[in-house]
């Protein structure tokens, strides 16, 4: 069983350096538009010259490329000599004008198509922006879980003799990660905000900046012994949330365990209820979702203050938790 003391200091060192580099890159992208633009231009240049399928084209790059490819350059060289070649030139010109007419018509058509796609793209961006969690910046209070609740979650995770690898989704500053590590668990956390993880990273915790859903998709089958849904994952759209529950089932070992430690929707004040995305999901609803994904899920009382209950779920068999009480 690993504990924070078992992890060599050099590992902490490398994790800290990596997190600092990622945070520096994010900060540079925000603060230096020229650099961000150049980075994008580099990406676009490679996408332009590489064969189709060689780059994981982001949607916008693909549209740019389609727009450029859709224009046919009809200006073919017309080198000619005098005399009889004038007729040849005339024929060529006629063909040229005809081709020009066809290509113009084609270009107009493809131009309309690409503009249409761009309009759809812009509307998608608006929808995506509306779904992002940036509204958390407007809130004056932290969504961090209390140390007491974190300890309770850690006890549940670490009560097995060999807990194995645990992942905390939306880990914030790493309160739960820290608690699990202190109790001997091998754990890392994922958070979308690079600034938020810095206090935890400086303490030597393995916290990474990544999109939670994308990270889950990258994991191999049966890779995790435990998975904790924490922080603000409940603010995701229901479809994304359901995908994550399904992915959780895939990445967990057969005896793996899911713990949901998220704030009660009812604990939100007026300001938070207005600003934060979504209505939040109550613990019985989490229990319902997990059961729909073939987990056996139970509710346990939590010490609060914002989390009155936590949900503990296991695959197929009944949940046997001995340390869930606070």
């Amino acid at each position: 069983m690993a504990s924070s003391n078992d992890i060599p200091a050099s590992d902490h060192d490398i994790i800290r350096v990596r997190a600092e580099i990622e945070a520096e890159a994010e900060a540079l992208r925000r603060e230096d538009p020229d650099l961000a633009g150049f980075e994008r231009e580099i990406e676009r240049t490679w996408a332009d010259i590489a064969p189709i399928g060689a780059t994981g084209d982001p949607r916008e790059l693909l549209l740019d490329r389609a727009e450029r490819l859709s224009v046919i350059d009809a200006n073919v060289p017309v080198g000619s000599r005098r005399g009889i070649k004038q007729i040849k030139l005339l024929i060529r010109k006629a063909i040229y004008w005809y081709i020009r007419y066809v290509t113009d018509a084609f270009n107009v058509f493809t131009g309309v198509l690409v503009r249409l796609l761009r309009n759809i793209d812009e509307r998608l961006v608006v929808v995506e922006d509306a779904l992002r969690l940036d509204d958390a910046d407007l809130l004056d209070f932290s969504a961090e879980v209390s140390p007491e609740t974190a300890d309770q979650v850690a006890r549940i995770i670490c009560e097995k003799p060999s807990p194995g690898l645990c992942l905390v989704l939306s880990c914030g500053e790493g309160t739960i990660v820290d608690a699990i590590q202190r109790q001997g668990g091998k754990v890392y956390g994922i958070e979308h905000d690079p600034q938020r993880i810095m206090p935890g990273v400086q303490k030597g915790l393995d916290l990474r900046v990544c999109d939670a859903a994308r990270h889950l998709r990258k994991l191999a089958d049966n890779q995790l012994a435990a998975l904790v849904f924490a922080g603000v994952v409940e603010s995701l759209p229901l479809s994304s949330l359901w995908s994550m529950v399904v992915e959780a089932k895939r990445v967990l070992k057969p005896d793996g365990r899911v713990v949901v430690a998220v704030a009660d929707p009812g604990s939100r004040g007026v300001v938070e209820a207005d600003i934060r995305s979504g209505r939040g999901i109550a613990q019985p609803t989490w229990q319902h979702l997990l059961k729909r994904a073939d987990f056996s899920a139970q509710l346990f009382a939590a010490p609060g203050p914002r989390i009155s209950q936590i949900v503990v779920a296991e695959l197929a068999t009944e949940t046997h938790v001995t340390h869930a009480d606070s």
């Binding site: 490398i14 350096v17 990596r18 580099i21 990622e22 890159a25 540079l28 992208r29 650099l35 980075e39 580099i42 990474r208 900046v209 990544c210």
Partner: peptide, 11 residues
């Protein structure tokens, strides 16, 4: 080694 999660050129 400095191990990076992604191969992003800026990182």
């Amino acid at each position: 080694a400095v191990l990076l999660d992604s191969g992003k050129p800026l990182e």
